[in-house]
Design a protein around this nucleic acid. Sequence first.
DNA 1: CCTCAGGGCTCTC
DNA 2: GAGAGCCCTGAG
Length: 275
Amino acid sequence: MKIKVNSNFSLIETVTCGQIFRFFLQEDGSYDIILKDRIINVSQKGNYLTVFSNNNKDLLTNVTNYFDLNNDYDYIDNFLIKSDKKIEDAVIKSRGMNLINQDPFEVCISYIVSANNSVLSISKSINEIARRWGEKVLFDDKTYYLFPEYCALKDVSIQEYKECKVGFRDKYIYNFVKRVNDNQSYLQSIYSLSTDEALLSLMQSPGIGPKVASCILLFAYQKYDVFPVDTWVKKIFKNIYGIENESNIRAFAKKTYGKYSGVAIQYLFHTSRNK
DNA sequence: CCTCAGGGCTCTC
DNA sequence: GAGAGCCCTGAG
């Protein structure tokens, strides 16, 4: 299937900028990506994406939503540049990088695993969790595993998570899975909360602090006003703006980038990381 | 063979 | 609000 995209959209930037952990570069330059309920193979030529999948049900809707193709990034980019001259460079360098809309449960577990952890380790752990408890899918002669639904993890023990090399985060995952299974509308209920309410609610789970909660809201719940502050962000703000502590960074971001703080931070982060 | 930090969080003081 | 400890992995 072919999908027309905005001329600025960049598949490579969007896939590789660090927001998703389960994508696989193919020899022809296309990507196999694991979505909630299917595998897609996707490549870009000019203004068109070519997409293959093992599951063609509502494929256009799913892919459009996943890559956030209906959002007006030209508007957001202009908004940010107008708000802050110093971000213009980052906006231009990141142009085409959309925020991917991922499945909330997978994002929650992935970012609990991400705390004080490297991208490679995170990917390995998530892939192992999927291999053990997710649905097996054969796609183009390759074997992939969907990320398991929370109910599939209901009886998994702390020890079994440990075997997935998640280290001290084993009990955090166990606890979160229990929370979600005990209250099956919990993940859905986050959508209707304000950003601050959602942050507080998520942070009630051990292992979810401000950074992890922010990432969850940004990557799974389309709350673009959240602002993850981690060690990288601190370095960036020290270098570009001379702003040092976290509360000063937050105040500046809120005042300057407003409801698009989360997009701004992705751009700044991405640009700095590529250096 | 080490040693160390990595896109944090919890617990304690 | 500052600091130690956490657990695994790859880089040096």
